[in-house]
Amino acid sequence: ERNGYGVRMRPVYRRTLTSIGRRSYAVVLPKEWVSKVGLNPGDSILIEVQHDNSLLLRPIASEHRATQQAVKVIRTGATLRREITAAYLAGYDRIVLRSDAPLSSADREVVRRTVRGLTGAEVVSESNNEIEIQILLDTSAVEPEKVASRQNALVANNIEIVADAIDEWSGDRARVAMMMDEEIDRHYFTLVRAVRAYARSGRLPTVRLLDLRLVAKFLEDIGDRLVRISELIASNGTSKPPGEALSSVAEKARALVPTQNRAFESFMRYEVELAEEVISEISVLIDSLSSLERMEGVQVDKRAQAIVNELKRIAENQIDIADITTPLPEP
Rank of each mutant, 00 (worst) to 15 (best):
R193F: 03
D185L: 02
V195N: 10
D181R: 04
A199W: 11
R196W: 10
V192E: 12
V176H: 14
F189A: 04
H187T: 02
P205I: 05
P205D: 15
E183M: 02
M179V: 04
A177E: 07
A177H: 06
A197H: 13
D181W: 00
D185C: 04
Y188I: 00
T190N: 08
M179H: 11
E182V: 00
R203W: 14
R193N: 08
V176M: 12
H187V: 04
Y188W: 03
D185A: 05
L191T: 03
R200Y: 09
I184H: 06
V176R: 11
R186L: 04
A199R: 12
V192L: 14
V192R: 12
R186M: 06
Y188G: 06
R196T: 11
S201Y: 10
T206M: 15
G202T: 05
P205L: 09
E182H: 09
Y188T: 01
V195Y: 04
R193K: 07
M178R: 00
E183H: 00
L204P: 10
M180P: 06
M179N: 11
A199G: 09
S201V: 13
R200L: 13
D185W: 02
E182S: 12
L191G: 07
P205G: 08
D185G: 06
F189W: 06
R186A: 07
H187S: 07
A197R: 15
E183L: 02
A194K: 05
F189K: 01
G202R: 05
V195I: 08
Y188H: 07
G202P: 01
T190Y: 05
L204C: 08
A194H: 03
V192M: 09
Y198V: 12
A177F: 05
R186P: 02
Y198T: 14
P205V: 06
A199V: 06
Y188V: 00
A194E: 00
Y198A: 15
A199K: 09
F189P: 03
E182M: 09
E182Q: 10
S201F: 10
T206E: 14
D185P: 03
M180G: 13
R193Y: 01
Y198E: 15
G202M: 01
A177S: 07
T206A: 15
M178P: 01
Y198F: 13
R203G: 15
L191H: 02
R186Q: 07
Y188E: 08
M178T: 00
E183Y: 00
E183S: 01
V192F: 08
A194N: 05
M179Q: 12
R196K: 11
D185Y: 02
V176D: 14
L204F: 13
V195Q: 12
E183F: 01
D181P: 03
A177D: 06
T190L: 09
R203C: 12
M180S: 14
D185H: 04
D181Q: 03
S201D: 13
M180W: 10
M179W: 09
F189V: 01
A194Q: 03
T206F: 11
M178F: 00
F189Y: 07
M178A: 03
E183A: 04
R200N: 09
V195S: 09
